[in-house]
Design a protein around this nucleic acid. Sequence first.
RNA 1: GGCGGGUUGGCGGAGAGGUUACGCAGCGGAUUGCAAAUCCGUGAAGACCGGUUCGAUUCCGGUACCCGCCUCCA
Length: 488
Amino acid sequence: MTIRLTNSRTRRKEAFEPIRKEDVRVYVCGPTVYDRAHIGNARPVVVFDTLFRLLRHVYGADAVTYVRNFTDVDDKINARAAATGRPIRDITDETIRWYNEDMDALGALRPTHEPRATEYVGAMIAMIEGLIRGGHAYEAAGHVLFRVRSYAEYGALSGRSVDDMIAGARVEVAPYKEDPMDFVLWKPSDAGVPGWESPWGFGRPGWHIECSAMSYELLGESFDIHGGGLDLQFPHHENEIAQSCCAHPHGTFAKVWMHNEMLQVEGKKMSKSLGNFFTVRDLLDQGYPGEVIRMVYLGTHYRKPMDWTAEKAREAAGTLRKIAIFLNGDPLSREWVDLANAKPTAEVVAALSDDLNTSLALTHIRKYLKEGREADLVGSLGLLGFKAEAITERFAAVSFEAFDNGIVKGTTVRSLGDAGGEVTRRFNELGKRLEFLRSEAMESKNFAAVDAMKTQLLAAGVEVRMSKSGVELVPGPGFDAAKLEALD
RNA sequence: GGCGGGUUGGCGGAGAGGUUACGCAGCGGAUUGCAAAUCCGUGAAGACCGGUUCGAUUCCGGUACCCGCCUCCA
């Protein structure tokens, strides 16, 4: 299976050939840790998690190294500390913990390494010294600046020329810069702002150098894939390339560059001022399971702008519910399959291998569901980052069934997942009562009591299904156990 | 001002130069105390203008519109 990926550097879809197939190396720019990750932050996490899973599938779990950094030195963090009076380390530690919790909920595997920038300041200083020695950087007014004109390829990734950008006149002008495009590698720190001793005095690194230093330390001067959001393409990635290639001229830095498109909310750019800004935690707290969020993300190809809408979340939840109900179906009614060893199908692997066509992969998933191909479904869901057990627990907590086939009368209670014994007991009780009322109504032709109870159950988010052979209660998307308890 | 991306049926969203995408919604039917669920069936598309071609929604060019980046941003 050949993996094909769109390489931002060449703007083409290319066959992916790792430098060493027993050691595939990926670097993705991670978050600046000063606040909860918003849903835009989560898109690259899910996109590159899917890539990580695909690479592990193709090359072997031990053959892939995935590095995603935490930027824990940044002026936004300093500002947050100043505003709250909290120590920086408290803020960054807490934010990292939150980040991992939230991304875990989305089914993202932890990267192989999650380096913190502050642990690599020494490596950054060493790299900057090398750049100065090579004539690619200079010290001025306590700052160290990268000399953009010293790197002829500058702008190649994002398709810009230095001259055009200066003409655009949207660059920070500073008197100490040789050229307006030059960017900061090191800057001085006052007291009260984090800093480290360096050959240029007490200071802190500029933003871009950390990724160059950490990717070099953990992956070497040449590695396979570098990813991130499209907004990072310029200037961040452009500057990374300039720094790394000038500091390590024998390396190629990243062979393939991948950028995910941005995320919108209900057709608009997500922003605090529009009131459509929310974090992953907000969605989880609102009752959107992580699986739903993940499925919404995977429904749009990573190189297209993605719109988060409530409607998409509703559809994804519906699909996951159907999967849960199917997987919880009567095991006696179908062939036994070895789910523990279920493997993704070739066509799902092929879809992902074609530049991560997750949308097509989900189409295949729906087909397996429709055709009842349990092993293919479970195996393929696994490659996409969905655990079958998690889906069944989340989407089909409890159901009750009573039946009367004319010969035998009885009840069946199915407890699915770990919804708790109390809810199960309650379902059993309510289901039996409904079945009783219904059988009476069938005689008397007066359905008032049945309808009243049904209305209450529906209000509690319970789907009521009545067929000739019985009734079934299934908790729906808006299931509310508290309302169920209040029901009499 | 510079750079990049997009425009597919009511909505979301893919593939393929000629053969059904798929899902949701709709419509018709089966089923149903009513309904839900389920099953069966079904209509509906490719912004606009040119070009290449026997044939393009799919390739090329242009126009329009939309979006993003260029400033912290994923």
